[in-house]
Design a protein around this nucleic acid. Structure first.
Length: 323
DNA sequence: AAGAATGGCAACCGCTCATGA
DNA sequence: ATCATGAGCGGTTGCCATTCT
């Protein structure tokens, strides 16, 4: 099999190229040009397979290669082309003279992907991570009010993360399992003489939530060890004209004034909640883009694509009765 | 100061496709 | 039609320098 001819031959060198090898290959190609790669090693006096020679020439030795950092125009072009072409690196590279597909792929994986995520853009789809439209939220509210009329008072709102951000100018919202409550409605719930309950975990109060090492660990696994970094990248958080922009890590939402104090999960421990914080006790995390709902407390993917769908299951709905 | 962790990047691997015998 | 071979492509690995703890 031709495909294995490279790896089967013993004496062939692998790994980084030495300056002497580069010199031999460059010299050979300069004189004889690019032709049959499989015969190049023998003719050029190299202990390499033809494939390795081809790669070295294309990615490093070719005289028309542009070296150094990518320009702003090149970066923009790569992002635009990736949106259209996806991971077709060779086609992308064809639009950038002097750049190789390998170089662009590495640049994408190590820099551009992270930069887009920091801007709240999903690098796979080039769309914002959280994109809940008002109509979707309204629809969710209507479904919820049919399921749980008691909780559908004006000040109680079915809430996604993005709505929590929109509402960040109001003080002190609690978001419990996808439900967001204003301070007023929270007091109503507190007056029920029951602790705040996570709807999916019967007896866990908000204040106890972060005292559970396993839950913190889970959230770190889910969001990364420094989740404030991840969430501070959401576009709605970065709008310069919004003094109430919100940063988040794990299920905790804090406002801009506080986020410096909470750069890591550990920093949060033992801190007092300030009046303008928004807290999310866990519960359901709705990931619009992936069409799935994750329960950070129970640590599995819930078999539902929306909160109302989840609640339409009688067993799940029963949990809410505890509120 | 030293070992661990991380990031960037060059190179490899395995697959598909094109071509020719 | 089938097989061998080479080229090209994209995913992955592994090395090395840098940063972190």
């Amino acid at each position: 099999m031709g495909r294995h001819s490279c790896s089967l031959k013993q004496k062939l060198r692998k790994g980084l190229w030495s300056p002497e090898e580069d010199e031999k290959l460059f010299h050979y190609i300069t004189i004889f040009g690019v032709g049959c790669w499989s015969s190049v090693p023998k003719l050029a006096g190299l202990q390499r397979c033809g494939k390795s020679c081809r790669l070295r020439w294309i990615n490093y030795l070719r005289p028309d290669l542009k070296r150094g950092m990518f320009s702003q125009q090149e970066e923009n072009l790569i992002i635009t082309l990736h949106e259209v072409l996806g991971n077709r690196w060779a086609q992308i590279a064809a639009q950038l003279p002097g750049r190789t597909d390998n170089e662009i792929k590495n640049f994408w994986n190590s820099c551009l992907k992270k930069r887009l995520m920091k801007q709240g853009i999903d690098p796979a789809t080039h769309k914002p991570f959280f994109n809940v439209t008002e109509s979707v939220l309204k629809e969710e509210n209507e479904k919820l009010s049919m399921l749980m009329p008691a909780l559908s008072q004006p000040q109680t709102t079915l809430c996604s993360y993005s709505e929590a951000l929109v509402m960040s100018d109001l003080n002190y919202h609690y978001n419990i399992g996808g439900l967001s409550f204003t301070e007023a409605s929270r007091k109503i719930l507190m007056n029920l003489d029951k602790p705040l309950l996570d709807p999916l975990c019967y007896n866990l109060s908000v204040s106890n939530y972060y005292s559970q090492p396993c839950l913190r660990q889970f959230e770190q696994n889910l969001f990364g060890s420094d989740s404030s970094y991840f969430f501070s990248s959401m576009p709605c958080l970065n709008s310069a004209d919004n003094n109430n922009s919100v940063s988040e890590f794990g299920s905790l939402l804090v406002n801009e004034n506080s986020c410096n104090s909470f750069s890591t999960m550990n920093d949060y421990q033992g801190c007092e909640m300030s009046s303008n914080m928004i807290e999310n006790a866990g519960g359901l995390l709705s990931w619009e883009g992936e069409n799935k709902i994750l329960d950070p407390l129970l640590q599995f993917e819930v078999n539902a694509t929306s909160l109302s769908e989840y609640l339409s299951n009688e067993a799940n709905f029963d949990v809410f009765q505890h509120l």
